[in-house]
Simulated assay, not measured.
Amino acid sequence: MKFAFFGSSLVSAYWNGAATYYRGIIKAMHRRGHQVIFYEPDAYDRQKNRDIPDPEYATVKVYAPTEAAVSEALEDALHADVIVKTSGVGVFDELLEKEVLQLKLKGKFVIFWDVDAPATLDRVQYGDEDYFKALIPQYDLILTYGGGDPVVNAYKSFGARKCVPIYNALDPDTHHPVEKEERFGADLAFLGNRLPDREKRVEDFFLAVAAAMHDQQFILGGNGWQDKPMPANVHYLGHVFTRDHNALNCSPKAVLNISRDSMAKYGFSPATRVFEAAGAGACIITDYWEGIDFFFEPGKEILVAKSGDEVKEILSGLSDEKAKAIGDSALQKVLAKHTYDQRAVELDALLQKELALPENY
């Protein structure tokens, strides 16, 4: 089948946490014989900060951030069988979310693919007259990259015809173990952009821990932290390009996952970087959220902390040998259960059913 994706960016991970997800799932779809055109706006300096060239598994079409260019892209997308509007394009989202539904009148199957369902649902639930609420029942299918039953039930309460999670996963071709690099050596590393509903948790689970553990070294990566006060034992890297993610995950004793408030509230929402880190064989310490054990076995494949004090306790008792054993177990789990090839199989089965396609279409 031919797919038209309207998303933030496939070729740049700059201020774009969904890039790894897009790449993994679209590459896996390509392997299964699908053709994908990815439409992305020239916005937020992403084209100036590309971290991959145009991939062989998709056709990338960059359009100007204007209404006229959006209309042209929508007209071009009529060549596809399935039209996908993802959340958080960042340019003319409301226009796109309304206009892709007009393509249903021309016989297209239209999907809303939510890569930040907790934020979307909170906005719809608590926003005054949010425009998207009325659009939800009109989509043929809602897909999310996390959230589990809480998100599915919330979408259904707003009239969604069907909502199915297609979870984040691992692409072993791009995220895998590499040699340690001295520049990324530390006791604990955290990689994540500075966002309002994550900052307080970063203060509690990372910066306060570093301040209390003067004899250990910490690394912080991601956009937006440059003016944030930090303890002297925290080394700030700024934006970390995708090419360096494996080394950043492999080199410290442990890496920290900190969920945004909304993702922790809904649960079942592991970030892409959890699977990236597991794919590199990293020992992951994560803040607690419901559904962790759906993906990893706590204590064996991942370490769970409910507070900054528990992060300190874990780090204090974490030997190099134990960290390696946990990282190795996490790697084996994601390779066995959580790859994008496996997610693409789930997606194919779902679309086959929803589109009433014959077997082996």
Rank of each mutant, 00 (worst) to 15 (best):
G281C: 00
E313M: 04
E310F: 04
T286S: 07
S262I: 01
A254D: 03
N257P: 10
S316K: 14
A305P: 07
I284A: 12
K253A: 04
A336Y: 01
A247Q: 08
S329G: 01
D341V: 10
L248V: 08
A278D: 02
H235G: 02
E276I: 14
S316H: 15
A305V: 06
I285G: 14
T272V: 13
V304C: 11
P231Y: 06
F241H: 09
I285L: 14
A323F: 01
D293K: 15
K253R: 15
V311Q: 11
K265P: 08
T272P: 00
V255N: 03
L303C: 10
L248K: 11
L256W: 11
S259D: 07
T339E: 04
C250S: 12
L303Q: 10
R260M: 11
T339I: 00
S319M: 04
E276Q: 15
S329R: 05
D341F: 11
F296H: 08
V311R: 13
I314Y: 15
A282D: 09
K253H: 07
F268V: 03
M263F: 14
S307W: 04
D309R: 14
A280C: 15
C283K: 05
V311E: 12
F241M: 08
I258K: 13
S307K: 00
Q342R: 14
K265V: 09
V274H: 07
A264N: 00
E313T: 05
K312W: 12
D328E: 15
Y340D: 00
K306W: 05
E276D: 15
S319K: 06
V234I: 13
K265H: 15
A305K: 06
N233K: 04
F296A: 03
D261F: 08
K265G: 07
V311N: 13
S251L: 00
A232T: 02
L248S: 12
I292N: 04
L303T: 10
A336V: 03
L335I: 09
K306T: 13
A247M: 07
S251I: 02
S307E: 02
K324N: 05
K265F: 14
V304F: 12
R260A: 14
E301I: 00
Q332P: 00
L331I: 12
E276M: 11
D261L: 10
W289N: 02
A336S: 06
E313C: 08
G299E: 03
L237H: 01
A323N: 01
T286V: 03
A282H: 09
H239D: 08
T286R: 05
A254E: 02
V240Y: 13
N246L: 05
T272E: 09
D309M: 11
Y236K: 12
V334R: 04
T242W: 09
A247E: 09
S259R: 04
K337M: 10
G279I: 01
D328V: 10
G291R: 07
F241I: 06
I284M: 15
E297Q: 13
R273G: 07
L256V: 13
S262R: 04
L331M: 15
E301L: 01
